[in-house]
């Protein structure tokens, strides 16, 4: 309550900046907020509903259109070049959506190309968004697949607190080909993995944080 007296009065108001509604920004407007770490710094302060809307926008805009064609890495003094598989798809996406330093080292010259384009780029050479993005293993009967998981709420053990994505699917759900519920009568397992050894010479190590049986 502000009380006034007869005559002259003066009150100073200090206003707190809250920034824009991130869910309403378009792709171009949102990008600088992602690469500067602004979104990452406020990720857990956002209302859950807004965080989920924003997460879907981010994946739809920066993962779904992202197609890694081939990759190459140093080998016997030269380069070994291969067609990108799901693990490279995961690393390439994590190096943008997440924090590339958790999965690779700058200067390792681990390169990938956009499908249909000749330009090669080094993982970590692009600006990343620093969001809580993890490797996700999907293991079923005769089926091993790697996808990505973006954490949507703090409890990592709740399946619905994750947005799963890989290739052209920005919201992989149980039953999709990338996450079959069962194969040959055997249930599929989905696990969240944390990198323990960065990508080097085409290999990396990780450990399971949490796991679900579909």
């Amino acid at each position: 309550m502000i009380s006034l007296i007869t005559g002259e009065n003066s009150t100073t108001f200090t206003m707190v900046e809250v920034g824009p509604d991130l869910t309403k920004l378009d792709k171009e407007q949102l990008y600088p907020y992602l690469t500067s770490g602004y979104v990452a710094d406020r990720w857990w302060d956002l209302p859950s509903r807004n965080r989920r809307i924003l997460a879907q926008n981010i994946i739809d805009w920066w993962s779904v259109p992202f197609k890694v064609g081939r990759y190459k890495y140093p080998y016997n003094g030269g380069w070994r070049e291969r067609r990108a598989d799901c693990s490279i798809g995961v690393v390439a996406r994590m190096s943008i959506i997440g924090d590339w330093e958790t999965i690779c080292t700058r200067g390792e010259y681990y390169l990938a190309s956009w499908e249909g384009h000749a330009d090669w780029y080094e993982f970590g050479d692009r600006s990343c968004f620093y969001l809580p993005c993890y490797i996700v293993k999907v293991q079923g009967y005769g089926f091993n697949h790697g996808i990505c998981g973006l954490q949507l709420d703090k409890d990592m053990t709740i399946f619905d607190n994750w947005l799963f994505f890989q290739y052209d699917n920005g919201n992989i759900r149980p039953g999709d080909w990338q996450m079959p519920i069962e194969l040959e009568g055997v249930r599929t397992f989905v696990s969240i993995e944390r990198t323990t050894k960065k990508l080097k010479a085409n290999s990396m190590n990780y450990e399971t944080i949490t796991e679900w049986e579909l």
């Binding site: 003066s10 108001f13 206003m15």
Partner: peptide
């Protein structure tokens, strides 16, 4: 009463 507000 007259009231001046200052916003910072």
């Amino acid at each position: 009463a007259n009231w001046t507000i200052v916003v910072i």
